[in-house]
Design a protein around this nucleic acid. Structure first.
Lengths: 114, 114
DNA sequence: GAAACATATTGACAGATGTCGAACTGTCTG
DNA sequence: CAGACAGTTCGACATCTGTCAATATGTTTC
């Protein structure tokens, strides 16, 4: 299956124009689930809006008001879901968006024009 | 929200180019949560692909292989999240997508220029 | 190597979630 | 009104989830 941006000349398509079978629904739900949490959404939003396009894990507990293990847990979820990628640089762990994966997901939410 | 065939010539769409505060994240997470379930995704996909744009609840248990109370539960979630709307017609309940809400959801995910 | 720091893993726990059968409510049709 | 049918609500249960303190692992610096 996959979720991809629309053609430019594509107007007013209905929502989710594909019949999902059980396996596809399961797969898509897993990604959505990873995003269906306020802390993780803010995490993604933080990374997406970072100047450099990446964020150091070290800043996150203070920024989002959760303990360090909790942040680590959420980061792990996002990496596993393919939403973030992780790079170790010295002592620090840096996180970036996986635009390739998000492009598909983002296209899920493209609004129908009237 | 669209699911379309793969297309090669796209690059790096923006994603969640908005800094979410705690309340916004909570609100968005609630909607995502409603979509983050395989049965509910298939439900939405079924409604979206219906000829008439709507689906009778009576068909859903057989179609998706869950008990009738379970379907009712999921439909309730989607209605409460503002993803579906419900109309009672005689004995039957019919469900439609709420394109207005879905469009708004889309605007958060795919926003500005790179 | 030891000490210090960044992050991950573990263990525990309260709360949420998906599921179904049973019972209830509402709507038609004789 | 009574019976049949469509859906919701309730109760119960197993499972999953977010959270944190404690501990472990890994990296750098002295």
């Amino acid at each position: 299956m996959f979720l991809v941006p629309l053609d430019d000349d594509f107007c007013c398509p209905p929502f989710l124009r594909v019949e999902l079978d059980e396996a596809e629904a399961e797969e898509l739900a897993a990604v959505m689930k990873a995003l269906a949490d306020p802390v993780r959404l803010r995490l993604v939003s933080t990374v997406a809006n970072a100047e450099s396009g990446e964020v150091c894990a070290c800043d996150l507990p203070a920024l989002l008001g959760r303990s360090q293990p909790t942040m680590s847990h959420h980061l792990g979820q996002l990496v596993q879901a393919g939403i973030l990628e992780r790079e170790q640089r010295g002592k620090w762990a840096w996180f970036r968006l996986r635009h390739d994966r998000l492009a598909r997901l983002g296209s899920l939410f493209v609004a129908a024009e009237p």
